[in-house]
Design a protein around this nucleic acid. Sequence first.
DNA 1: ATTAACCCAGATCCGAGATC
DNA 2: GATCTCGGATCTGGGTTAAT
Length: 636
Amino acid sequence: MQSSVEFNGVSDHIHQLLAARSAHSLPMNLSPPPFFTIDAQPPDLRIGPGNPQLQNNPSNELGLFRQLHQSDPFKDNKNADGLEEEELMTDNRSICEASNRWPREETLALLKIRSSIEAGMGDSNVKGPIWEHVSRKLAELGFNRSAKKCKEKFENVSKYYKKTRDSANTRQDGRSYRFFNELEALYNGGNNQFKPVETLSQQKTTVQKTNGEPNVCLNSHSSEGTSEEETLENPETHANPSASDQNRKKRKRKRSSLELMKGFCESMVEQLMHHQEELQNRLLEAVEKRDQERIAREGEWKMQEMARLNRETEIRAQEHALASDREAAIIEFLKKFTENSAENQSPTQAPDPKPEEAPSSANPTNSLALPPENHSPNPNPITEEKSDQSGVVNNGGFHLKRWPRSEVICLIRLRSNLDQRFNESGSKGSLWENISKGMAQLGYNRSAKRCKEKWENINKYFRKTKDATKSRPPDSKTCPYFHLLSNLYQKKMELSPTQKPENSSNSTATLEIERENEVERESESLRDGVQTVGERPNVLLPSIDAGDDRGAMIMTHDPETSRNLYDETVMNGKISMERMVKEMIEMPHGHGHSHQCGVPLNMGSLHASDAQEQLSQSAFMALVCKLSSSNYNTDE
DNA sequence: ATTAACCCAGATCCGAGATC
DNA sequence: GATCTCGGATCTGGGTTAAT
């Protein structure tokens, strides 16, 4: 009792410190002072596989707490605990990153961050930015995980939590799952707020276990003091008057030793307090310093972003001007060209312009006058997406949610070409990255994830419509990619080992015929696509070379796709404008190229002398098709 | 046992175009 | 202009598989 009075002020102070730790208000670093050399093992504060305490003691959240309150734990631990811990943690992090596995503290940090924004998530339909936020928060804690990974991890952990929770008949009751408490707090918490895993008392216990030498010491001394007092006040000590002197001396010695002990403990507590205050001050300084650094970094980053955006704007403007010049030149040339052709024409040979073609033949400039965005100098066909109001800025350019038809077809072809590799075991991420790159080369800026999602969605819809509309009309628009996907699945069926016995009976000729039919079906599919657009019945509809990967650049008179062709061929520099015009003039008259290149039927006999009325937009685009195709052949 | 990655189905929201 | 329909995007939950 007396000791508690004597040490009352001190213990209160210590308890305040401990309470502060328990409440996570400050990351107190209670590394034991050197004079506390009690039998109890000092806690191993290392974080990582080398720390059995951390691994085996589920309540040891010290590492997490430190990380949660330090924007750069790996940096600060250097100050707090020295280089060794920093190296260990860095090693651990690198190991975890290399193996993609989430260490415990990282998972806990994820759960905490996720739960801290749980309240805000309920109002939001779009969860993507939230996971971006979580990813950023984790990055602030030193964990580099993408938003997708965070989301996936959270889903997996939640899944496993629910599984273990609901499985009552398992050997374990689910509570042994190491994130059970956190997830239970997350799911059952009244205010959706992540509760600290431990109760206050548990935390105190934990802290005492972890840094508990002061308390152990005090308690030890306290009990010791109490026993001393009990001894002093023990009436039995007065029972023997003969030993009174001895007892008096003993009491005196004990009192003096008690005084010494008291002074010793007070000095120890003073040292402890001083040490803690020093550590706390250092920590506060470090936090302030880090905040300032962070603000400075953010400012710098903002400046860099602004500069980058400005640069991109300038580059775009330059490209725009350049392409405008180019277009003006070619339009001028075509004007001259058509004027010359008209002069060479006999008036009796001039066909009556069809009403619908009159505008284009009368004014070839107009015929080429695609909408401004179609003539955008941006070599990236994404420019066509600018027309979409829902576009969002992506990588400095406009990117929209909706996939243009041509883009989807490119995706299908790219994906189909890699189908065999997709059938192999192993990660498909790199394949989607390749597809994304391939799309990028074709001018479509889509991430691997987007490609994958799109692929999944079109397949989903394909299957849905396939099953739902067995008697599907040939011109149905319900699944615009029906034929392409149908062919792909048919190929799969043919290549499938289970199907091979059936197919093995097929002769080579039969297979060839099927292959031809396949190509024909693909042509039909494209034709369907064009016909649904519904223009120009006089145009030979395009075919695609099924064996050519670059057939992703579909040759069609679908205005949208034609624009892509235009952008692909001219703007991407696949052919020069000069060459295109040259080829246009020297274009053969026969039909040989017509089918291959999608030249209009009535352009099959195109000649400089009678090209005027035929020089419509479709003809122009067909020429681009032809030129791009021949350019490919040249490249090959 | 645990986890990351993959896959799928269903629900929902939103935008665009068609229809009234 | 209001309403309806359709297609696309997104989210969510659950299952599976292979690796650890």
